[in-house]
Design a protein around this nucleic acid. Structure first.
Lengths: 143, 143
DNA sequence: ATGACTGCAAATCGTTTGCACGGTA
DNA sequence: TACCGTGCAAACGATTTGCAGTCAT
């Protein structure tokens, strides 16, 4: 089963309808492993599916995210972007050059979390860890 | 010298004019150690300074931030908020109840940073670390 | 057939900008 | 007196919502 079909199955078994628009969006997301904004995705989709609306892209991406079928990356002061892949807990490594976002798992700051709970009285429920830098490809372009 | 005067001096020596609006905004920021949005700050200021414009609040906060005299906290999908205090590198502890943001310094994930550089080829330049939870005060209210 | 889904337009929210006036240095 | 700073209104970009028509099941 292709990842494409897998997502469509999850959609169907969660009780949602498989419309041509949803199929097209899922296909586009699976075929591109870099983060895409709703705008960019919509523009790309227009070539093959001229009748798809930007709002539908927003709604479908939100839906897929809620089902845990893709994950959202929200930069400060810019449009959110989405990337295919299961939404387990992870952290981000963001390239300032091309905007690509690499996920990595593990390395959670658990000891720091306990220390902070002791020092501040907070009950800590979650955390975010993000690194910014320049990916190998963009380092070459810089020179 | 009060913290209030200290900021005003920095403004003046950086070549900016000390207008009544800037004085009012600085005073309000210094007197409140919880993060405030431009909107909220503007509303609060209107009681004593009916002629101040929201745009001026935005511009003044931006200016103070650029001078490193206060720091901005940008939550996802919500208005930015500002808090008095010098803008040294730090991390955040955010209360989901009252929205307060506690800063803490140190504990930077430097080893993880080097490990990631080795594994991914990124040149890492910065990072963000943020914990979410419930502060002591809000835990009591919950019960 | 019926309710979910879609597309359009319009509304919303936070923030920024153009411009003419007013006040600080 | 020069500009810098202000206020207003309007523009802006991302996202959401109301609504009437359409389509998957």
């Amino acid at each position: 089963m292709t990842p494409n079909q897998k997502i469509l199955n999850e959609l169907k078994s969660a009780g949602f309808k498989l419309t041509p628009q949803r199929r097209a969006i899922v296909e586009a997301m699976v075929n591109d492993n870099t983060p895409a904004t709703p705008q960019a995705l919509h523009t790309a989709l227009l070539e093959k599916h001229p009748e798809i609306g930007l709002v539908t892209v927003y709604r479908t991406l939100d839906l897929l995210e809620k089902l845990g079928l893709l994950c959202r990356f929200q930069p400060e002061g810019a449009a959110a972007s989405f990337k295919a892949g299961p939404a387990e807990h992870h952290h981000h490594l963001v390239c300032r050059g091309c905007g690509d976002v690499v996920n990595f798992t593990g390395h959670c700051p658990v000891e720091l979390e306990s220390a902070l709970e002791r020092e501040t009285g907070f009950r800590i429920t979650d955390h975010k860890l993000e690194f910014q830098g320049i990916c190998r490809g963009c380092q070459v372009k810089e020179e």
